[in-house]
Amino acid sequence: MAVRLKDMLKREPILSSGHRMCAGCAAPTVVKLMGMALRGPTIVCEATGCLEVATTIYPFTAWKIPWIHVAFENAAAVASGVVEAINAMRDKGRYKDEQVDVIAIGGDGGTFDIGFGALSGALERGHKFVYMVYDNGAYQNTGIQRSGGTFPGQETTTSWAGKVEPGKRQRKKPLAEIVAAHKIPYVATVDPYHYRDFITKFRKALEADGPAFIHAFSPCPRGWRSDTSKSIELAKLAVETGLHPLYEVIDGKEWIMSGPSKRLKELRPVDEYFKTQGQFKHLFKPEWAEFRAWIQEEVLKDWEELKRKCGVS
């Protein structure tokens, strides 16, 4: 799909202004780009979280396409029901639309953690839908608690940086890889800065012959204690430091590194990323120098492994 400004301008946005996401939150931009990739009638099933809450505060909704929220941990299960209901009604000649795309959206908490069982089940069953996680690195809606998507060294309200703790100690769950291991037709990581890459991949996800998964990086200035103007720049930096590399996995076996990552001669140091956010500030204290070095080492190892899988030298 060629992504041209003039075509994008013609499209009606799927999310209106007047939503109450924080100033500078990248999630609405992520949804906007998703909207640019749609190919026709679409239904969205969303998990509880910032995006759900702040776009549908009764009596207002920012959504211009059919949208349902049921609970936090079940977006993939709700989507299963939507997909199969449409299939059944179509089988019986009771459904008018030729094709309706179904998209489930969850935050990192709703996807890496509490909704993971529902996601894995839905992928295994093979319903034709796209699941997109917008990953802002913590349970932001409930006040910045750690999740399986939180980076090591990240300070949250349940992984404080203190005299003896450097924020979260554990690695980030490699979710896209775990999802790819389900051998579904399409998995991709995206970020809003690289909008062409985002839209192109999202469209591929919609066109996949079976379930597809999109891992979208989504900066959160409030939780990250970063400048509101930097959200899109931080998405770029996350790619350039290797914290959120861009790639696709086809059928769980063909790994393809995407242009923006592939074109990097080498990764920028993670410190450059950490410096931009209050949530990593403590890492620059001398006592955490070694821990910070460990994170850098792990990122480089993961990067080499990804390059190897993608056949990139």
Partner: peptide, 15 residues
């Protein structure tokens, strides 16, 4: 059930 039947009526809420 809280169903909102006016798509995009958040436009009424000026931020």
């Amino acid at each position: 059930a809280g169903i909102i039947i006016e798509p995009g009526n958040a436009m009424e809420y000026k931020t």
